[in-house]
Amino acid sequence: MTDPQRYSALATILAAAGMWLLLPRAGARGKAVGAVLVAAAGGLLLSQVPALNGWTAQGTFYLLVVVTLGSAVATVSLASPVYSAIWFGMSLAGTAGLFLYQGAEFLAAATIVVYAGAILVTFLFVLMLAQPRGRARYDRVSWEALVSAATGAVMSGVLAIAVVAALHPRTQGGPGLQTTERAELVQHVLAEDHVAQIGRELYGRHLLAVEVAGVLLLAALVGTAAIVSSRAESGRRTAAEEIRGVSEPLSSRPRA
């Protein structure tokens, strides 16, 4: 094991312990310690990769990462599902910032509009609709908090070790990846008419996929309507049965 791999393994253990402390466990203490441990693990993992050019670039990137991952941890660890959903919206905003940092303007806008604007609001709507009174018992406990936290942390740690090993073949002894100097090529994705190029790509090379996605959206719409309307119909039928059940004794009542 080389040094970065050792540090990544240490970060995995720290993250597992921290997430175990942070997950809702019926009012158990130690949330602050867990937050510190998770932050230390994230910093340790991110310190294993080379820095970006310049401190402004690095600072902006770290700010976006803190917003994204901190909100993600809050989503997972807060007991109240409403707070979880709102923190997930914050995490989406951070992800949109990360997209923008990569030059993917259209994706950043689409993430905000579709995820935070439509999907998350629908989630909150259902949450408000289905909010049981009082803090629910099943929100205050977790399934196997330690095993779950260890699983997720090991997953992240293994992925991070694999990334570092794959992209630095000589120093890490990994399989390696063909890298060339691509300073002039990057102008393509980062071009000024980026959105126009995305449209050209979407409706040129991926036209069939766009059509399939449209069919999928229609199928989801019809399916959702079918699921909800079948529930409404069954509810109506039970109401009719109730009326019939009330009227039956009246009709079968013996005449005086």
């Binding site: 991952l69 997972v76 992925l159 990334v163």
Partner: peptide
């Protein structure tokens, strides 16, 4: 890639 892996693991 590291940030993506961490986000995936938290989820």
């Amino acid at each position: 890639l590291i940030v993506g892996a961490m986000l995936f693991g938290i989820g």
